[in-house]
Write a protein that binds this DNA or RNA. Structure first.
Length: 279
DNA sequence: AGCTACTCCTGGTAGC
DNA sequence: TGCTACCAGGAGTAGC
């Protein structure tokens, strides 16, 4: 599922194809994708809009479309965005198409239809409360230490909470916790400063490397807008490696369920909150 | 505050 | 081979 590195990759790859273009028309094949606005209204309002900027916040991609108009996209589970050349065949599972002034077409593709592409005046109308960007200067080790101290929740649900920290999802949370040798059920306020710093460093390092590798493509869904798979899945230490040996200690990777989410750990490297290896 | 349960979806796969 | 049942999960919401 697309998380911060995948979303950042999408933004980087579609940006040069969109900047300076103007949207001339829209086609909506699945009305829910554009939220509560009617397809007719969406089409009428977006036509003629210039694409001034393409940026990312957490897992959202935002298209600034002139004064007091923007398009806010979220890929959720299986969403993709791409810009196809004039005259080329439409992709399967396209939910929204935006015809651009050079003949190319922006496509929002989404097999499971969870993704959204919302037209609004300001992004804040669409964004829920979002925590800091993990790769920004705001996300310092000191801030993270203090923020963890204020929360009693288990690390896994806390790190998945976008209002705490924006951009992490199931994969990168599991990877970061393993890198920092922390069990997903450890409680945030019980971490030592050293452990909090290790987690902070792990989150940043993993996200940076994943972006460098254009994200992860562990199943048939995620592809970069150029149609290429990402490369970070080869770096996975725990995610999707149930039963395989931990690359650090050889113990088999275990899968558990935490907060309805599949969770992957090395029971030897990541000690349970009780201080014993997980059952 | 933070937990669980439920909802939205459908391709892939396990089991028969 | 062909069918059915179930799984994956981000995030919003409801209820406790």
């Amino acid at each position: 599922m697309p998380e911060l590195p995948e979303v950042e990759t999408v933004a980087r790859l579609i940006r040069p194809r969109l900047l300076g273009r103007r949207i001339v028309d829209a086609r909506i094949d699945w009305p829910r994708t554009v939220g509560t606005m009617s397809p007719a209204s969406f089409r009428k309002r977006i036509a003629g809009s210039p694409i001034d900027r393409v940026w990312r916040r957490g897992k959202y991609i935002v298209f600034d479309l002139g004064p007091r108009r923007c398009l806010v996209g979220h890929l959720r589970m299986t969403g993709r965005m791409q810009v196809r050349e004039p005259g080329s065949e439409p992709s399967p599972y396209v939910k929204v198409s935006l015809a651009l002034d050079d003949g190319s077409v922006f496509e929002f593709i989404d097999v499971r239809k969870f993704g959204r592409l919302i037209l609004a005046e300001e992004p804040d109308e669409v964004f829920p409360k979002l925590g800091p960007e993990p790769l920004s200067d705001e996300f310092t080790a000191a801030w993270f230490r203090a923020a963890l101290k204020r929360r009693s929740r288990a690390l896994k649900p806390l790190l998945l909470d976008q209002s705490f920290l924006a951009g992490l999802g199931n994969i990168y949370v599991d990877e970061a916790l393993h890198a920092a040798r922390l069990h997903p059920l450890r409680h945030a306020d019980r971490l030592t400063g050293k452990a909090a710093d290790a987690l902070h460093a792990a989150i940043r390092a993993i996200l940076e490397e994943a972006i460098e590798r254009e994200g992860s493509s562990f199943d048939t869904f995620y592809r970069t807008p150029e149609g290429q798979p990402g490369d970070y899945q080869h770096q996975f230490q725990v995610y999707g490696r149930t039963g395989k040996p931990c690359r650090r200690c050889e113990a088999p990777i275990r899968r558990l369920v935490v907060g309805q989410r599949g969770t992957h750990i090395c029971a030897r490297c990541q000690r349970s909150p009780r201080g014993r290896p997980s059952p």
